[in-house]
């Protein structure tokens, strides 16, 4: 069994600070996935500690704003880390970046772990839950999602049915 924390708390904190800037989710939410350590290790394994360090430096140099990262390698690592947080999937890197990093592994996408998929942040952007996990309960799909207007339920339209309308040209 691998240790739960193979890296120092300090570097995980740096990774989380950068991840918050990349994803728009705060450290509490990121910890809340239970994936922080695994993702940090995955990034280190995939592109190596020095490249992760250069990415963190580039982000710092940009004042913490990922839009300000100019180096394409650092930027593609930023894309990959954001992609991982949102979907649980480490993606293919851009082909030139893969070459530039001299990676000794195939440039293939993979789901970091089964739980990484279910902890993807993308579902939370629209107040959803991952398909196949964290079910919200029987019938909840009938409720309006946050920000949506109430509409009549089936069977409630006893009156005021619109007459025949045409769809227009």
């Amino acid at each position: 069994m691998t240790p739960k924390t193979s890296t120092s708390a300090r570097s995980l904190d740096d990774f989380l600070t950068a991840s918050a800037a990349l994803t728009g989710f705060g450290a509490f939410d990121l910890h809340g996935t239970g994936m922080a350590g695994l993702y940090h290790r995955t990034a280190l394994e995939q592109v190596g500690g020095p490249a992760v360090g250069r990415f963190l430096d580039a982000l710092d140099a940009a004042g913490g704003d990922p839009d300000g990262i100019t180096d394409e390698t650092a930027r593609d690592i930023a894309r990959a880390i954001a992609h991982m947080w949102y979907l649980g999937v480490w993606p293919q890197l851009a082909a030139p970046v893969h070459t530039a990093l001299g990676r000794e592994r195939a440039n293939t996408a993979f789901t970091v772990s089964p739980e990484a998929y279910t902890e993807g942040l993308v579902w939370r952007t629209f107040d959803g839950h991952p398909a196949g996990a964290k079910p919200p309960g029987f019938g909840t799909w009938a409720d309006p999602p946050p920000g949506a207007p109430a509409v009549p339920r089936a069977g409630e339209r006893t009156s005021g049915l619109p007459g025949p309308r045409e769809a227009g040209p």
Binding site: L22, P66, A95, L121, T125, P145
Partner: peptide
């Protein structure tokens, strides 16, 4: 296709908001 040049990309709160707005 990883061989194709990549766009600048959205990050942070703008990425989060855009995903929510579009997927939702």
């Amino acid at each position: 296709d990883p061989a194709q040049p990549r766009g600048k990309g959205l990050f942070g709160p703008r990425l989060r908001a855009a995903l929510g707005r579009e997927i939702g």
